[in-house]
């Protein structure tokens, strides 16, 4: 009889395009109630977050300067990679307690969502840019530019679809993100980093942490080099803390807690625009 021992995988953080252990040496044990299977995740610390922000900041200038076309290509590549690993994600969702039917549906929707936003990469600017008809002899136009580094607290209860739905609008717009995976079920998000890793996403554009919201929300919102926070935590204390801390450097705060990500109307370019700044440029018309 051929027996071989299961390989117990260690799930790491994804920071600056590298799979790294938490500097804190802590871990979170995740137990599958049905099979009594356990998985260990890194228990990210504020220093891991700090490193991730630094990576995001370094990546921002580069990513921001990618053409929309190029960003779209990369997002579509992520969709392709997710599609080629869909069995893995379906089984992970099942493992985390979803029905098979719902799991298949969620992976399909996740791929669709990536494709949806990939398609916006070189179009939302056209929808939200304008030439403003000023009454003086000036050419005046406004167009969106990414806000910068965005910290994201991903939905607790939509491990894959919700996770993708909240980070991708920011990323397609040229922002870089540090995202905290669902603290109850981080598996899909952490596996997703492997998809990213094989998808030509430049290092540092998407950084994924596993850990606890109540430990990290304060840091996610107080870091002075973070420009915006997307908050999906339903805990009012977290929300209040985030809003309070955002005053430190006038962070933009977006609360997506109530959005149902399975609904097709939960995707729109206005979510991309949340993490955009409109820049208006004036120039005289003459000779």
């Amino acid at each position: 009889m051929n027996t071989s021992l299961d390989i117990k995988k260690t799930y790491k953080l994804y920071i600056d395009g590298k799979f790294s252990r938490t500097e804190s040496g802590r871990y979170i044990q995740w137990v599958d109630s049905k099979n009594n299977q356990t998985i260990n995740f890194c228990h990210a610390s504020r220093k891991d977050f700090r490193n991730a922000v630094q990576a995001s900041r370094n990546a921002f200038n580069n990513w921001n300067n990618f053409s929309g076309y190029n960003r779209g290509q990369i997002l579509y590549r992520i969709a392709e990679m997710l599609d080629s690993r869909k069995e893995q994600f379906i089984s992970e969702l099942i493992l985390q307690g979803k029905s098979k039917k719902k799991s298949i549906q969620e992976v399909k929707q996740s791929i669709d969502r990536l494709v949806y936003y990939a398609g916006w990469s070189d179009k939302f600017q056209q929808i939200f840019s304008r030439v403003n008809p000023v009454s003086t002899p000036y050419y005046n136009f406004s167009s969106p530019e990414p806000t910068g580094v965005v910290s994201v607290i991903a939905p607790k209860n939509s491990y894959l679809l919700g996770f993708i739905s909240v980070i991708v609008p920011a990323v397609v717009g040229g922002n870089t993100v540090v995202v905290l995976a669902s603290e109850d079920n981080p598996l899909c998000a952490i596996s997703f980093s492997e998809v990213l890793h094989s998808s030509d996403v430049p290092n540092g554009v998407i950084n994924i942490l596993s850990g606890y919201c109540n430990e990290l929300a304060g840091h996610f919102s107080s870091h002075m080099d973070v420009n915006a926070v997307i908050n999906c935590s339903s805990d009012l204390k977290d929300s209040e803390l985030i809003r309070k801390n955002s005053s430190l450097n006038v962070k933009r705060v977006f609360d997506y807690e109530s959005i149902d990500w399975t609904h097709v109307d939960s995707q729109d370019p206005y979510l991309i625009m949340d993490c955009q700044e409109v820049k208006t440029t004036w120039h005289p018309i003459g000779y």
Binding site: N132, P133, V134, S135, T136, Y138, N140, S142, T147, N227, N249, V250, R252, E277, V278, K279, T280, T281, W282, H283, P284
Partner: peptide
């Protein structure tokens, strides 16, 4: 949020005005 090229301090109702970073939301 506003760049004046070869001019400065021009305003118009059709022209959006506002800041990045700590200059506003």
């Amino acid at each position: 949020g506003v760049i004046w090229a070869n001019t400065f301090n021009k305003f118009d109702p059709t022209s959006p005005f506002g800041g990045y970073k700590e200059s506003g939301i």
